[in-house]
């Protein structure tokens, strides 16, 4: 154990969560984009362990590769080299179709711009991921209502996205992310488009999901205040993970 070793280097994550099993495990991950013959490295030599049930923030300058890293963890992008093991599955071995199925069971997505479907009500938006399951209509309804209750919007079920505030839209999006009860939530700047008050509500909600529902949350953010909600803050710079992020203040 080296809890107080702040110079744990690239394996800092392992140290921080050594007590618990790592649910996200990246080894030697490299990501390059090819643009007319030229290779642009975006991520280089990433080793990362995120323990089950932790709430981590990923910070770093614009263009440092935060979104790219999050996408690799969430299984919507492929590595150029290395392995990504999430929730016990080696994602680099899965086909497109298998990845889609895997995502539907393991990952909840929260986006900066909410990305709700505008023609559907809050209820229908939250129900969307359940269309991929075999649940009956009644069971789906129960789940959607539960998810909307968790985010505090059970009274807005029949509202369309344009009838909701940004903060409310993001809460609907969070309900959509948790309705299938995935183990991992990925959030790319979930408060980036919100005012301070709404942002705080969203962060409180994520904290609740983390503590009460034991979700593993990986959140990309620019906002140091938002990052304080997380247990661990990791920093990316020019495609490399910096030394172990100082843990945010535990509450």
């Amino acid at each position: 154990m080296s809890d107080d070793n702040l110079e744990a280097g690239k394996n800092g994550g392992v140290a921080a969560g050594a007590a618990k099993k790592a649910i996200i495990k990246l080894r030697g991950v490299r990501k390059v984009y090819k643009r007319d013959q030229q290779e642009i490295p975006v991520l280089e030599g990433i080793d990362l362990d995120i323990p089950e049930g932790s709430f981590e923030a990923l910070m770093g300058p614009s263009g440092s590769g935060k979104t790219t890293l999050l996408n690799l963890i969430a299984g919507i992008d492929n590595v150029s080299a290395g392995t990504v093991e999430v929730a016990g599955t080696d994602l680099t071995r899965l086909s497109e179709g298998e990845l889609a199925t895997w995502r539907s069971r393991n990952i909840g997505f929260i986006f900066q711009f909410y990305n709700l479907l505008p023609v559907f009500t809050a209820f229908q938006n939250v129900e969307l991921p359940l269309l991929l399951t075999n649940l009956s209509k009644a069971e789906r309804k129960k789940r959607v209502e539960t998810a909307l209750r968790v985010v505090g919007l059970e009274d807005r079920m029949d509202h369309y996205p344009r009838q909701l505030s940004g903060g409310q839209e993001q809460r609907v999006a969070i309900a959509r992310a948790i309705v299938t009860d995935p183990t991992i939530l990925v959030a790319d700047e979930p408060t980036g488009d919100l005012d301070r008050k709404s942002a705080e509500e969203i962060l409180k909600l994520l904290d609740l999901l983390h503590r009460k529902f034991n979700k593993t949350i990986v959140m990309v953010t620019h906002d140091p205040a938002a990052a304080q909600s997380a247990e661990i803050i990791r920093r990316l710079d020019k495609g490399q993970l910096l030394a172990d992020g100082a843990a945010g203040p535990f509450r």
Partner: peptide, 14 residues
């Protein structure tokens, strides 16, 4: 396009 991408991320197949 963005909506289709969101649906695919959520787990919808091609």
């Amino acid at each position: 396009t963005t909506e289709y991408a969101v649906m695919r991320a959520i787990g919808f197949q091609q």
